[in-house]
Amino acid sequence: MPRVLLPGQASRLFTGGQAEIEVAATSFRALLRELETRYPGLGRQVEDGMAVAIDGEIHQDAYATPLREGSEIVLIPKIGGG
């Protein structure tokens, strides 16, 4: 199953301090749903204000992005720039 890593303390507030969780999701959209179901508020937080790094690539706002078995998904703040 894909693994979700939460390096930031702010995200861990939703998971009771858990820094790594496994999800059954096969797409980014499904991931958001599962996070929201298991940790109310986290899915919404990720959708509204965060990006995810999927196997090292940063994705922002990408519902359809597929997740593969063993994918590493890291929750990080959204990235802007100058």
Partner: peptide
Amino acid sequence: GTKAAYGPTFP
């Protein structure tokens, strides 16, 4: 393959 200090594994 390095795990970046901010979490993700670099491509």
